[in-house]
């Protein structure tokens, strides 16, 4: 998994609450056999509307999603995270995420940032007024910054130390386990000879 230290990018303000995983990626996309190629399924139903924020020309290439409360509720499908990442999002900001979605996102290296709703409101206002505005999500300093002068947003956020460390180091579960490869090899050295093998030789 890619390490996440700090990221600066343009934003997509998504003024909707309770966006469930079925809206993020509809069930019929689950038949796919890869982890990529989900970008066209992201918010598929809403994308049919040319006015939907993601379809606006000025939002192309944006990498930070500023979402409403209770983002990622519903089914536990990891595909929702993959779809957001495949589309190009590096971070999602919301005042509240569904637990499983948040767990899945952090496991996959998509940073989900919880900020108070008034701050999210501020980010919505800023990024709606200026599509070029850069939003910085800084995991080292644990804060989100955007804009200049009076309307500047600078908001600290919390993330548990373990999840933060894993993101900063770019460690997925597998890399973490592989840090103990010596232990695995040692265990393998002591396995009884009578244990079965699927391959001959």
């Amino acid at each position: 998994m890619e390490a996440f230290t700090t990221h600066t990018g343009r934003a997509v303000p998504l003024r909707r609450s309770n966006v469930d995983t079925d809206q993020i990626i509809p069930a019929h996309w689950l038949k796919k056999v890869t982890r990529d190629g989900f970008e066209d399924g992201l918010f598929e139903a809403w994308r049919k509307d040319p006015e939907f924020v993601l379809n606006r020309p000025e939002r192309q290439g944006a990498t930070v999603l500023v979402a409403g409360p209770d983002f990622g509720t519903g089914s536990s499908r990891e595909h929702a995270v993959w779809a957001l990442q495949n589309y190009g999002f590096k971070a999602v900001i919301s005042s509240r995420f569904a637990d499983i979605f948040r767990g899945n996102s952090l496991k996959n290296g998509l940073l989900t940032v919880v900020l108070p709703q008034p701050v999210v409101d501020g980010l919505w206002a800023l990024t709606e007024a200026d599509a070029e505005l850069a939003v910085t999500v800084d995991l080292v300093a644990r804060k989100v910054t955007a804009g200049q002068g009076e309307r500047r947003v600078e908001a600290p956020f919390e993330l548990d130390e373990n999840a933060r460390w894993r993101l900063l180091e770019g460690l997925d579960d597998i890399s973490l386990t592989l840090r103990h490869e010596d232990d695995i090899a040692a265990y393998e050295g002591g396995r009884p000879a009578f244990k079965p093998r699927t391959l001959a030789g």
Partner: peptide, 13 residues
Amino acid sequence: SQVEHVLATQTLP
């Protein structure tokens, strides 16, 4: 995800 973990490491937390 755990299938991938076992394929890569032959272990599971």
